[in-house]
Design a binder for these strands. Sequence first.
RNA 1: GCGCGGUUAGCUCAGUUGGUAGAGCGUCCCCUUGACGUGGGGAAGGUCACAGGUUCGAGCCCUGUAUCGCGCACCA
Length: 737
Amino acid sequence: MSDESQENPKESSKAPAKFLKPYQPQDVEGVIYQKWEESGFFNPDNLPPASAGERTEPFSIVLPPPNVTGTLHVGHAYEDTLQDIVTRYKRMQGYKALWIPGTDSAAIATQARVEKNLQKDEGKTRHDLGREEMVKRVHEFAKNSEDTILGQVRKMGASLDWSRYAYTLDDKRNRAVFTAFKNMYDAGLIYQGNRIVNWDPKGQTTISDDEIAHEERTAQMVTFKYSKDFPIAIATTRLETKVGDTAVAVHPDDERYAEFVGREYDATFCGVPLHIKIVADKAVDPTFGTGALGVTPAHSMADWEIADRHDLPRPQVINEYAKMDVEGALNGKKVLEAREMILEWLKAEDLLVSSEDVTQNVATSERTGGIIEPLPKLQWFVAVNKPFTIPHSEIPGIESGSETTLKTLMRTAVESGAVDMPQDGFRATYFHWIENLRDWCISRQIWFGHRIPVWYKGEEIYCGITAPEGDGWEQDPDVLDTWFSSALWTFSTLGWPEKTQDLETYHPTSFMSPAYEILPLWVSRMILMSTFHLGQVPFKKVLIHGLVRAKDGRKFSKSLNNGVDPLEMIEKYGADALRMGLIVGGAIGSDVTFDEGRIKAYKLFANKIWNITRFVFENTDDYQGGTVTETKHQENIAQLREVTADITREMEQYHLHLAAEKLYDYTWKTFADKIIEESKADLVNADPAVRASAQAMLIEILQTTLKILHPFMPFVTEEIWSSFPNKGLLMVENWPS
RNA sequence: GCGCGGUUAGCUCAGUUGGUAGAGCGUCCCCUUGACGUGGGGAAGGUCACAGGUUCGAGCCCUGUAUCGCGCACCA
């Protein structure tokens, strides 16, 4: 700051004409962004030295890649703002600040979107087009939507290094994905297995646990016996699955049924022959229902595990189209029809014991709304509990060359503090999720995405980064779960698997700020991939943010049609106002309610800064130099120094909302309402030294204020800064201390 | 069921290590004083969900209750 007061004496300026009108963000934002881009300073390789000398310390963030399914929404705007504030702050502090942009192909979401359009516009399905044509269409759609969304990110003022732009399906990221797959396959951590998966009959694909939404429905809970001579009644809401039963399980300590354990019975159930064994298993809750569980291994996760323990057969009785696949009259019926038929049959045979309505949560696909049918299928999995030897580890508590599991890595990365997750609540959620984690099903039966890098020829199987030599090889038709590639994002964007300078310099990344809803989906999987492939955490600090909600507290969603278009807000109030309005909306981590009034308030604030500047220019046009000599002026500067230190403290703790509020408060209540008001008398003082002192003070306070406001309101501050003679870009000025 | 979070002014939300409650918007009154009316000055408005506890002192810490919301797992 002291060097500033020595700089000032050389400066004198008239108020440029633009200050005579109110601030018009629309006129300047595009121009300013272009100036920034042309400067090359978004790329840390081009940054000028800082006050402390050459920039040596890296600071890196990767942008959580928006899906190429549509346009920017206000949640993106919030997230972009958080990251841009941090990036700009660190850049001004002298770091090699890098923020990498990218987009995500979002396999299922994007394909579903295109399929929907296809159905609507042409009345066709993807099968009508064929795989090749369909994938082409999806790529076209993605390209279009990518252009749109990147244009929108720029409008937010995001200081992203576009020269390092990455797309999850580009060549480099493809290579990273295949390499990651192969490495994990070779380590025995990716395997193929027949397991119960969440099958979406509507989307004709498997989906992960995280893509399931539970919907509350009323269902009929039916208690019945398989046959007249069967000794135990069981209950179910899914009668149609009962033709796939191979056992009845009771609790080992349940005396009511103890005598039956081990016996086997034959029955013909609604035309289907059943062979039922009575087994004892701890998983059964003796207090629920009749205390006996009909075991349907092929259509229930829990039952599959019971079947494992008792070596039971696992007949599949429902197919991929949610239709019955059994002997007799039920064959080919939809599950709901079959349920009715069986109920009628039970009544007719007098096997129905009782029936009641219950409320239960039905698993549906988040994407298609289809009711999930648990089915056994041959799928690819990542083994999270399987021990393996990690060749290299920088994670505290995990030695290089030691035996560990992916789950242990995920837990240790956060437990050890290598990933700093300061929000206790979210850390608890994270650990809770890890504890319940099962093997991750990574194959998807869709066409758009990373094709699984495995080829088959008869009994032979080959896993590699490119197709194997020779004829007759056929590639696995499935594609990978989109989160598989997203999970590599912190290092695939930096050039991995090549040993690039970027990877060396910028990984682990410094900071990540995702929404809490993708903590399990994405954050934990980035930790999984990064610790496995690099032995490093993906980021040193993760600060989870909340959702932006509509004023009534509901989520913004397309179906509710309550969305707010950030571009409309920018058009109306300016990007700076939108940024401030979102940041001050609430503490990071809690949900933010969207409030247009708040954004409007910050448009007024931008104008206030504009007019402060006008006042300073108008009153310093004859400024010939001189320093801040008056005691009260010096006190004002000292006070600003304290405010700056306070704001810096808040920034260091990532209390961005507090820093923003304090900036607003200082600029308006102290600088404008007190300092400027009090300076008016001094500016007309007969003693030219007093006037000069006031002038020096005003210039210094204005310039410092612009600097500390810049990360929050980059456009208006940069525009004002450009009106001072002999100044470079504000974005690379040094953060005052 | 397990886990997490919220409950503070009419509305939307802050509140840093416990020290007499804050902002924006809204409401009311005043001001055509040369930076800005997209402004300035002032005012009203809160038993900080409830009940206990710890403390000299609690919006903040502890226990419990209510209520709203979220996540995970689901019971057949």
